Computed example of a mutant assay.
Amino acid sequence: MIKLNRRKAIALMGGAAAASSLAAPAIASNRKIKVGALRFTSHSGSFVAVERGYFADAGLDVELQFFQAAQPMAVAIASGDVDYAVTAISGGLISLAQKGAIKVIGGALTEEKGIDGQQILVSDAAFKAGITTPAKLDGKSYGITQTGSSFHYVGSQIAAQEGISLTYKPLQKVGAVIGALKSGQIDAWNIVPHIAKPLSKSGAVHIIGAVSDYLPNYQTTTVFTSAKNAADEREMTESFLAGFSKGVDDYTAAMIDKTGGEDGVNQMVDLIHKYVYTDRPREKAAPSIINGTMRLNKNAALNLASVEHQLNWFKSEGLVDSSIGIDDLVDTSYVEIIS
């Protein structure tokens, strides 16, 4: 196991440009940790666990650290700047796992039939030119944050299943992709519904399909940590997963099962609004937060088959070393494995 400083972690990214329920954690002594997140509704498990004291109950004093893309978060885990994070699998994350710096320890966001998931978007210019279904994207430009990002993976799956080719445009940050799509500098993109639906209502972009049509049961994001934490800090890691999972349970109950009715939804929206769409008044943020409701895996269960599919694609594209195996990437000892 190795611990990397930030410079070494970035260098190692190189060419990448099981229990059924969680053990109750021992109460630690208010241990301070940092948890990486994006300002997306899909990261609500962490937000709820902080706000409702579930991390504190598990003996953890959590500071949230926010990022704008997946790969910088992977670097932060490898360098020790962040202890745990939830994000999509990227080429950078896989390469760092191969070097013994990172381990996936659970699952978070997943695509599920019957729940609106990630949407496939096109610019208004592309839509007016007749790009009204993903099958018509042949030869068009597709926005991604980085080469080897989850957006790159999803775009490739759409292209493969439709028998088309896409030109990928790395734009580094989600905000930059949104700007490029709205201005017609790129033709298409995929993103979670709390971003996709408001964009489509603006008229600047249009929804032409759903990611779940191409990737049912896609393990969109995973929970991960440093290989050192996974191997040597089992109590802390189980404590984190337990607190996080309680946050997920509350989120699911309020937003999907709606066990608390309208009041429960409103309370959850109030909580999430502290972290998502903070630049908007609550009444304008609420519809987007509600639109972003997707399934977060109970007890951080991990769809290993989906993760393996992603890994194999990264290898087939030459974005990571062909020798890396699933055991290099995933520690299956922490959570239930599903398929």
Rank of each mutant, 00 (worst) to 15 (best):
A301Q: 12
Q65E: 14
T222S: 13
G139M: 06
V211L: 12
K34Y: 09
F127C: 02
Q71G: 02
K201M: 12
I94P: 02
I191E: 14
P216N: 11
T132R: 11
K197P: 01
K298C: 00
L302H: 07
Q65S: 13
A125T: 14
I144Y: 03
T132E: 12
I105N: 12
P216V: 12
A180S: 15
K140H: 12
F244A: 03
D331C: 10
S29C: 05
V104F: 09
E111F: 08
A17N: 10
D232W: 03
A88P: 02
F314L: 09
G264T: 00
L93D: 08
I272M: 03
A188N: 06
R282C: 00
H152A: 04
R39T: 12
G14M: 05
D328H: 08
L60W: 01
G264M: 01
V320K: 05
L241G: 10
E162L: 03
P287M: 07
A126H: 07
L329G: 03
V307P: 06
T237I: 11
V154T: 11
A18K: 12
A97Y: 08
E51P: 04
I27Q: 13
I195L: 15
K228R: 09
G247T: 04
I324Y: 12
I144T: 14
A129G: 03
V307C: 10
I195H: 05
G184Y: 07
A210L: 13
N297V: 01
S165C: 00
D138T: 11
M13H: 01
S150W: 13
W189K: 05
L109H: 08
I144N: 05
T132K: 15
E111P: 04
G243N: 04
A231T: 15
A301W: 02
E162D: 15
M73I: 08
S316K: 13
L199H: 08
A286T: 06
T222R: 01
L121P: 09
S322N: 14
